[in-house]
Amino acid sequence: MTRSALPIGVWIAGVFLALAVLGPWLAPYSPRTIDLAHEYETPSLRHLLGTTDNGVDILSMLLHGARLAGIVAITVVLGSLAIGTLLGTLAGYRGGRSDHVISGVCDLVQAFPSLVLNVAVLALVARPGLLHLVLALLVNGWVLFARIARAQALVLRQAEFVQAARALGYSEARIVTRHVMPSLMGPLVVQASAALGSTVLAESTLSFLGLGPGASASFGALLDQGSSVLLRFPHVALIAGSAIALTVYGCHRTGDYLRDRLDPRS
């Protein structure tokens, strides 16, 4: 493969993001249109991917599900990136007590499987909605970003250009925001694209377990419906599962691709 050719994973991630934006306009039906006469139909010209529970069009449900997954993933990743960069830079650059506290909290959050922590947080609200889902995913989403930012900041603190800025008498705030943080961004961008995939998977898993925002169409909820009728109508679960697996695979490969491109050593 030539160096300029984009791997298939990047295309998949791109299509997913495009559908997250355009999906609801492309959808031929509403994900709430009930058509009991055509329940659990296999793919046909009328319903390109068939229908599920109550005759809802699967393609339309997936297109709306891409919107939900996209909104959740992008919000959670941007939020995690902001919180993680801030705390990680603080820990790595300042060191000492701030480092102890922040690294300690990271260790504690990571002692819980992320799914378990997400469920525990969601249990606090009567009807978890989109906002609660995002908050629950943020609770552990920031940790990996903080760890990466900390490791980078530890190195950058000693870097010559940072020492030069210090020698020039720049304020600490200016050094951190104008010199340290921009140099952190490479590895954090790589982590962000991988985190997009993990967040889509986390949203799907929570929806699959029945903990997602109830009113919205979601990949995971569709897979859950499909799993309960696996014996008679396997196409529902097959299509929903493929959508999840493809999206997650695409985002992870995009992360790998960016790492290879951004890291001159590899």
Binding site: L201, S204, T205, F208, G220, L223, G226, S227, L230, L231, P234, A237, L238, G241, S242, I244, A245, V248, Y249, H252
Partner: peptide
Amino acid sequence: GLAVPNIWLGPLLVLGFGVWLRVLPM
């Protein structure tokens, strides 16, 4: 193994070994 999420692998295995091949319990 890394690309197939467990929420998807489970139903796939049930479909393959329980429904189609009928060699393992549902």
